[in-house]
Nucleic acid binder design. Structure first.
Length: 722
DNA sequence: TTCAACCACTT
DNA sequence: ACCCTTGGTTGAA
């Protein structure tokens, strides 16, 4: 018997058990096998259960009567169906559920790594010790307390592969390869030579992580060799699909998963830009889902996995489908209950020395602090519910990372990874709240969702009262933050007593986002007097800009428009006070004017004018043809596959059809719809400038007009000054 | 010119 | 496999 320590990097079903890959501390990549059974449950009327039992008897399963706990309905009599080969669970389950559809099934679709964790205490990306005989793992257990749980410094061998151009836009002719310090290109032609060379890279470098651009959709499907580390396996392919999440349709290209090593396609990974490899690894470990799964799934899937794991570890059954329906409510009750977060109407205008105070992870903190969980509703003395149990360690880990970040020097090498990991955890926290109210969540109930928003509004109102008692003016509140001001208060320190008072009252952690030198709450474009709660921008004392809701934040704004808007903001951001802003307004106007001249003179690259928008349906299903829908139709007519959820990239052109998809070749400068882009730019400029026109005092306005810069402004802006 | 339907995005 | 709303565009009256 030999004992090894290391990181568990892969688990999947193998013959009569599981296959494990251990990144062993001596540097070996150990391939181990371990016997491992999987159990799922069926419950329902005893006559049906007896029939199911009869049907299953004689198959290669173990059957047992067991009483087990359902989160909502309590103890249930079940048949426990145990399968020797965990890979067989889906088959056995689909067969029996087809024959007995009215039974309730539990634990049947729990991902294998979660079962493994519940049984052994060892999860993916955990440190562990394995006792082996040859490649047979006899025992595995976690290595706790041996090292800081915050550390996630796996000594991974990473192989990066990316084509020289986007395969959707043209035919790549070379592949850029990076591993360790080596960096070079391989020509794709002749194909045979290319495959031989690439295979040699896999063989000699033996990567743990293959990080690609377009690997799912382009590179891996065309390989003529097996890129797996477990050579007995074929790669796992998943078809492309469109799915609905975040209130929108998303498109995910086909996927290629590997065995024994990971493949992540940066271009086919959810939120990858947000937190990178470090974030994906963090989420994979925190949720217990595999790295390759987590990289391609939304945080919602991660939250589901975490809740499943909590359930498994606390002997609660995991229902296969959601069984909770939203209880019937009168319209009046519904209106009262489901009001979402607190939204306050700020006064349109610009303000100085304003502090923005945020509740840290407000909704999750409320869930934990007030024990909000679908099964604890209306039970004030209930023990910790499933959702708070799931969330508490998540909150704590994020807090620990945050604390470590504060201690580190900003240029410390570890900072980047820690920030990415904190961001990755934040996404899980955010989504967990949404999941409480999600109609298909296994452990959700809309009423618990509403309880959270009710409490959040209450907390904000309490904070407002406290602030006002202390002499502050509350300018704005939005879901989990408030903007406060008091004359003579201008440093973060000045607001400390207020923050302490709020924490004492609410028991929810808050953080100072910063004190603005000045901040502007922008008006609605439809009606200049009406504010939009989440349209604001300003500059903090340290010179950093913050902006929300304006064109810059939208991903369908052309780069050029966003760039000019940012330049204007940067310009205004140099002002230390509102009075100074007025000195910078002429320069901002000049930036706008120059940009428009650049456009007319053809000095703006069509690439920077590209609009990228997601379509939510197939091109032919549109009743009203938006520019994006038109571009999608053009693409489809040229024979390209266009699916709902896919991003469409195009530029506005003159005449019909008014758009040109990027995929259809380079854009002729002369065809660009200059007027349309001018309007887009003017609107973005207005977003930034209007608020100053609307809110400056009469005296300041008169002052502006006296200065001769006004004529350089465009018509729209002159108009808005009036 | 007005208005309703439609559509994508944000937090 | 996440809740909802708002701003902007289109196209018909």
């Amino acid at each position: 018997m030999t004992a090894y320590t290391g990181w568990l990097i892969d688990i999947y079903a193998g013959q009569g058990g599981v296959s494990l890959w251990l990144l062993e501390d001596g540097g070996q990549r150990l391939f181990l096998h371990m016997p491992f059974e999987a159990t799922f449950y069926a419950a329902g009327p005893s006559s049906l259960l007896r029939a199911a039992w009869k049907r299953l008897r004689g198959q290669a399963v173990k059957l047992e009567r067991q009483t087990r706990r359902d989160l909502f309905s309590g103890d249930r009599d079940t048949i426990a169906i145990t399968v020797q080969d965990p890979g067989e669970v889906p088959h056995v389950f689909s067969e029996i559920s087809r024959e007995f559809p009215s039974l309730d099934y539990y634990d049947a679709d729990v991902p294998l790594p979660l079962r493994f964790y519940a049984r052994t205490g060892v999860g993916l990306l955990h440190r562990c010790q394995v006792e082996c005989e040859g490649n047979l793992a006899r025992d595995i257990h976690p290595l706790a307390g041996e090292q800081d749980p915050l550390e996630m410094n796996l000594p991974l061998r990473v192989l990066e592969l990316s084509p020289n151009i986007d395969p959707a836009l043209g035919e790549p002719d070379s592949l850029k390869i990076k591993h360790g310090r080596a960096e070079y290109s391989l020509r794709l032609q002749p194909q045979r030579a290319f495959m031989v060379s690439l295979k040699a890279v896999f063989d000699t470098y033996d990567p743990d992580l293959v990080l690609t651009d377009f690997g799912d959709t382009w590179l891996l499907p065309m390989l003529t060799f097996n890129p797996n580390r477990d050579a007995s396996r074929e790669v796992l392919r998943r078809k492309a699909n469109s799915y609905f999440t975040y209130g929108q349709v998303l498109f995910r290209g086909q996927q290629v998963h590997l065995f024994g090593r990971w493949h992540i396609d940066r271009k086919n990974a959810v939120l990858f830009r947000e937190y990178g490899v470090d974030g994906v690894l963090q989420q994979a470990r925190t949720t217990g889902l595999g790295v390759q799964e987590m990289a391609r799934k939304s945080p919602g899937a991660g939250i589901t996995a975490m809740q499943m794991r909590t359930a498994l570890c606390t002997q609660v059954l995991v229902p296969v489908i959601k069984q909770q329906a939203e209880s019937a409510k009168s319209l009046k009750e519904l209106v009262a209950a489901d009001r979402g977060g607190m939204i306050y109407q700020p006064l349109v205008g610009v303000y100085e020395n304003v502090a923005q105070i945020d509740f840290a992870s407000m909704y999750p903190s409320i869930m934990v602090e007030y024990n909000i969980s679908p099964e604890t509703l209306g039970k004030p003395d209930a023990p910790d519910g499933l959702v708070p149990q799931t969330l508490r360690p998540l909150l704590e880990e994020r807090l620990a990372i945050k604390r470590q970040l504060i201690e580190l020097h900003p240029r410390d090498q570890r900072v980047k990874a820690l920030k990415a990991r904190a961001a990755a955890l934040k996404w899980l926290l955010v989504v967990c709240f949404g999941y409480l109210g999600y109609k298909n969540a296994r452990f959700g109930k809309i009423e618990s969702h509403e309880a959270v928003t009710n409490i959040s509004r209450e907390l904000l109102l309490q904070s407002k009262e406290i602030a006002e008692e202390m002499g502050f003016t509350v300018l704005h509140m939005y879901v989990d933050c408030l903007f406060v001001q008091q004359s003579g208060y201008r440093t973060a320190k000045d607001f400390t007593p207020l923050m302490e008072a709020i924490v004492e009252k609410t028991h929810v952690a808050i953080a100072m986002d910063g004190v603005y030198r000045w901040v502007a709450f922008a008006p609605s474009r439809m009606d200049g007097r009406i504010p939009v709660p989440n349209r604001y921008f300003g500059v903090f004392q340290d010179g950093e800009l913050k902006y929300r809701g304006i064109e810059l934040r939208r991903h369908d704004t052309p780069l050029w428009v966003a760039g000019v808007q940012l330049a204007m903001l940067n310009c205004l951001g140099q002002a230390n006070s509102l009075l100074q802003v007025k000195q910078y307004l002429p320069e901002a106007a000049r930036i706008l004017r120059r940009a428009k001249a650049d456009l007319r003179a053809g000095r703006v690259s069509p690439d920077d004018l590209m609009v990228r928008q997601r379509i939510s349906k197939a091109p032919q299903d549109y009743r009203s043809l938006s520019p994006t829908a038109r571009a999608a139709q053009v693409l489809q007519q040229s024979g390209r596959q266009v699916s709902p959820g896919q991003n469409i990239r195009f530029v506005y052109t003159r005449g019909r059809p008014g758009v040109q998809p990027l995929e259809l070749g380079p854009v002729d400068q002369r065809h660009l719809d200059v007027d349309r882009y001018t309007v887009l730019l003017e609107r973005a400029a207005e977003s930034v400038l209007d608020v100053f026109g609307a809110s400056m005092t009469e005296r300041l306005l008169a002052d502006y007009i006296q200065h001769s810069w006004l004529p350089v402004l465009n018509k729209t802006y002159e108009f808005s000054l009036k």
